[in-house]
Amino acid sequence: MFTEVAQNLFVLSEPLSFYGFQIGRKMIVVRLPNGDLFVNSPAELTAERIEALNDLGTVRYVTPSSKLHGHLYMEDYARTFPEVELFAAPDLDRRRTDLAFDGLLGSSPDPRWADVLDQTAFLGHRWLTEIEFFHVPSGTLILGDVCYNLGPEVPLKTQLFARLLGMYGDVSVPLDLRYTMKNEAAGRRSVERILDWDFERVIVGHGRIVERDAKRRVRDAFEWLV
Results as ranks from 00 to 15, higher is better:
T120L: 12
T120S: 06
A121Y: 08
A121I: 13
A121R: 12
F122Q: 05
F122T: 00
L123P: 05
L123K: 13
G124H: 14
G124W: 14
H125F: 04
R126N: 10
W127F: 13
W127A: 14
W127G: 15
L128C: 11
L128K: 06
L128G: 11
T129I: 04
T129G: 00
T129Q: 09
E130T: 04
I131E: 01
I131Q: 02
F133N: 07
F133I: 01
F133D: 03
F133R: 04
F133Q: 04
F134A: 00
H135L: 03
H135W: 08
V136D: 06
V136Y: 08
P137L: 00
P137V: 02
S138F: 07
G139M: 01
G139N: 01
G139Y: 00
G139K: 01
T140S: 01
T140E: 01
T140D: 01
I142E: 04
I142P: 04
L143T: 00
L143I: 00
G144C: 03
D145H: 01
D145V: 02
C147G: 09
Y148V: 10
Y148L: 02
Y148D: 10
Y148M: 02
L150R: 03
L150S: 08
L150E: 09
L150P: 15
L150N: 09
P152M: 10
E153I: 06
E153M: 08
V154L: 00
P155Q: 00
L156C: 09
L156H: 11
T158I: 02
T158P: 03
T158E: 07
Q159N: 05
Q159C: 07
Q159Y: 08
L160G: 14
L160W: 13
F161P: 09
F161S: 03
F161V: 00
A162V: 06
R163D: 07
R163I: 12
R163A: 05
L164T: 07
L164P: 02
L165N: 14
L165Y: 10
G166L: 10
M167D: 10
Y168K: 01
Y168Q: 08
G169L: 03
D170A: 15
D170Y: 07
V171D: 05
V171A: 06
V171Y: 00
V171N: 04
S172G: 11
S172T: 08
S172Q: 15
S172Y: 05
V173P: 02
P174L: 02
L175M: 15
D176L: 14
D176H: 13
D176V: 12
L177D: 12
L177S: 02
L177F: 10
L177T: 07
Y179N: 14
Y179D: 14
Y179C: 15
T180H: 11
T180N: 14
T180E: 13
T180C: 11
T180S: 11
T180D: 15
T180I: 06
T180W: 11
N183C: 12
N183M: 09
N183F: 11
N183I: 03
A185Y: 13
A185L: 06
A186I: 03
A186F: 04
G187D: 05
G187M: 13
R189I: 15
R189C: 14
R189E: 15
